[in-house]
């Protein structure tokens, strides 16, 4: 019998980096693949500049706890997020971090670290706001949690008619990120 698929991730950064958005995109794409999904935000008075994080669970089976003590994967976009969540990552887990903004070395030895200069790449592409998509691309390419096609379908849904013009740049950022995550 095939082991049922299960993955949990904490995504963290500061408000405005689009952390919540890529978390939502991840569950949109995964739901399209028939998976059960949960997304739970840190909620409160955290707007632009404050810290923001969300927890995502993706599973073939019904999901119990949507709150995760030690996640299998971590996407962190800034120093405070690395400080807060590095100790909680599961042994052997995957840390995807934004090396454009994270200045310190990772302390843990028993994890896989993927450094992505997400801000630089996003700027090169022409929209520095797309750094979040670069990070997501690296994560998806490495873990294969969900297919690129479903992420892009999800992106179309989430951007909607109003922000349709942002699709191409986000897609490009995602694809660039994938290059960093390839195993």
């Amino acid at each position: 019998m095939k082991t049922p698929f299960y993955e949990d991730i904490i995504l963290a950064g500061f408000g405005g980096q689009g952390i919540m958005f890529i978390g939502k995109l991840l569950i949109h794409g995964s739901m399209k693949e028939g998976k059960n999904v949960t997304w739970i935000p840190s909620y409160g008075p955290a707007m632009r500049g404050g810290t923001a994080n969300c927890t995502v669970v993706i599973s073939d089976e019904a999901i119990g706890s949507p709150v995760i003590s030690s996640p299998h994967s971590l996407i962190v976009m800034n120093n405070p997020s690395l400080d807060a969540f590095e100790p909680r990552l599961k042994e052997g887990g995957v840390l995807v971090m934004n090396s454009s903004l994270i200045t310190r070395k990772v302390k843990r030895k028993n994890i896989t670290v993927i450094g992505v200069p997400a801000n630089e790449i996003a700027s090169e592409i022409g929209d520095k706001r797309a750094a979040n998509m670069v990070m997501l691309g690296a994560y998806v390419a490495h873990t294969k949690t969900v297919s690129k096609e479903k992420i892009l379908e999800g992106l179309t849904d989430l951007l909607g008619e109003k922000k349709r013009q942002l699709f191409e740049v986000n897609k490009k950022a995602f694809e660039k990120g994938m290059e960093f995550g390839k195993v």
Binding site: M31, N36, V37, T38, W39, I40, P41, Y43, P66
Partner: peptide
């Protein structure tokens, strides 16, 4: 509770 209100699920 607050988490049920804030969380997203299908």
């Amino acid at each position: 509770d607050g988490f049920l209100g804030q969380m997203i699920e299908p």
